[in-house]
Amino acid sequence: MPNGLFGPDSTAEAVTQGLDLSGQTALVTGCTSGLGYETMRVLALRGARVIGTGRTLEKAEAACASVTGDTVPVALELSEFESVLACVGAVREMNINLDMLILNAGINTFGELELVNGIERMFAVNFLGHFVLANHLLPGMRTAGDGRIVHVGSRSGYTQAPTVGIDFDNLRGEGSFDPQEAYGRSKLANALFSLELARRLEGSGVTSNVIHPGLVQTNIARTAPGWIRTGFDLLGGFVAKTPELGAATQVYVATHPALEGVSGAYFEDCNPVRVSGEHHMFNGDMARLLWAEAESMATSYLTAA
């Protein structure tokens, strides 16, 4: 795996300096704020056409209109799989093949157990909605024989996930609920999704990698208890990255020529990382089980035209 010239102090603009992305098309989920907004802004700045999704069309339109370059707003509410299919339909109507698919959007509920269609909410939004989206968009990327898929994961995938990894018997609220473990589980799921997808894409020309953006000053903590929000507001500037710094890794992995053909890797601070200790980030057997479970959970949405 190539180590690059960039690190924790690099911005998304810096890692794309000198790149001309004209003629390329990217889709970025969660473009209305934070990492997704900065990712869209920089890709458009470098000449790419960027399809930016927001939870409502109005929010996506406002975000897209505020950046320089070619942007296309599309509605995508990842907790509603009908919305995922509508987003897929909108992309197909554009009659384009994606060069970059950046699965960026995510939530952290911080509170009590919530179910979406009978599935724990963070697992449904952070992982399963993206699973349905990507599987519908993959055929076009395979046909083109080129493209990069970037999954926004987190260190939480190996520091906060349940000890067993993906606890398949507790995805629908069957057992105890710990919000930190649930968030870690969803981010581990993103890493395993990327790993299994990379295996399935071998020889296709399309790559799949997962990244950790770092602790970033975004609004993901907007639903946290007041004392957490207050603490983050007061201290975030000292311990957290700005969105400009946080977006660097996903933009680098999506665009940089040095990573041509690199797939199945995990990146932090713009460099590939092998995580020591006991964890499940590279557990191929668990990744295959997760894929099968996701197919079972979303069968009707995966087979929909």
Rank of each mutant, 00 (worst) to 15 (best):
S10I: 07
R55F: 00
A63V: 06
L19K: 01
S10V: 05
G69F: 11
R41S: 14
R55S: 08
A63G: 06
S22C: 02
I51F: 15
T39P: 08
A65C: 09
I51M: 13
L35S: 12
A44K: 03
A44W: 04
D20S: 13
G36E: 05
V15R: 01
Q24H: 00
G30M: 04
D20F: 07
S10K: 07
D9A: 14
I51C: 13
V15C: 06
E61Q: 15
A26L: 05
T68I: 10
G52N: 03
V50P: 03
A14W: 02
T68H: 12
S33W: 06
C31A: 15
V67Y: 01
T25D: 06
L27N: 04
R46A: 13
T29H: 10
S66P: 01
G36A: 06
T68R: 14
G69I: 08
V50W: 04
E58R: 14
G69K: 08
R49H: 11
L57P: 01
G36W: 08
E61V: 13
A62S: 14
A44H: 08
D9V: 10
L35D: 12
E58K: 14
G52S: 07
A26W: 03
G36F: 05
T53Y: 05
T29S: 15
T56M: 07
Y37K: 10
Q17D: 15
T68S: 15
L27E: 08
Q24F: 06
L57V: 09
G54Y: 09
A12E: 02
E61H: 09
G54N: 10
S33L: 08
I51W: 12
T11K: 04
L43R: 05
A63K: 07
T11M: 05
G52A: 09
A26R: 08
V42W: 09
D20P: 07
L27P: 03
V50N: 05
T11I: 04
A44P: 10
G34V: 12
G52K: 06
A48G: 02
M40V: 00
S66D: 13
C64P: 02
G34H: 06
Q24V: 02
R46K: 15
G23V: 01
G18L: 12
A65I: 04
V42D: 07
V67N: 00
A62Y: 01
E13R: 15
G52Q: 06
A65S: 15
T29Q: 13
V42E: 09
A62W: 01
L21A: 12
G34Q: 11
T56I: 09
L43V: 02
T29N: 13
V50T: 05
L27K: 01
L57G: 00
Q24G: 00
E13V: 03
G52F: 05
R41Y: 07
T68D: 13
A26K: 07
S22Q: 10
I51K: 11
A12V: 03
